[in-house]
């Protein structure tokens, strides 16, 4: 017996929510200087997009959106693994995870 939740709120609300989450993520990236927190904010942004996709998928009755979310998760997992490895390596070399230290690109 499948439990199906009905009578969900209008989709616009989900749009507003995911936009808000995304903006918070961007704000975090801009605000913080610790690379690990920036990484987390990026995860937040990814999740807001995931939420958006799932809502569209549910409301339009199309499974493809959820498959995409699945793939996004895959990519996010890979990204976090590589990103953290980079972070460890940077920390080892520079003794800090502050992005202001990474200014070798100065022209």
């Amino acid at each position: 017996m499948k439990e199906v939740i009905t009578n969900t709120p209008p989709q616009n609300w989900y749009l507003v929510l995911s936009t808000l989450l995304f903006s918070i993520g961007v704000m975090g990236v801009l605000l913080r200087r610790n690379a690990i927190i920036i990484l987390m904010c990026i995860e937040l942004m990814l999740n807001s997009v995931n939420l958006l996709l799932v809502s569209f998928s549910a409301y339009a009755g199309n499974t493809d959106g959820q498959v995409f979310v699945f793939f996004i998760m895959v990519v996010a997992a890979a990204e976090v693994a590589v990103g953290l490895a980079l972070l460890v390596s940077i920390y080892r070399n520079l003794g800090s995870t502050d992005i202001d230290v990474l200014s070798k690109l100065k022209g």
Binding site: K2, N7, T8, S57, A58, Y59, G61, N62, T63, Q66
Partner: peptide
């Protein structure tokens, strides 16, 4: 409202 409910 959702069109169908079993997509997920």
């Amino acid at each position: 409202a959702p069109v169908t409910t079993d997509v997920g």
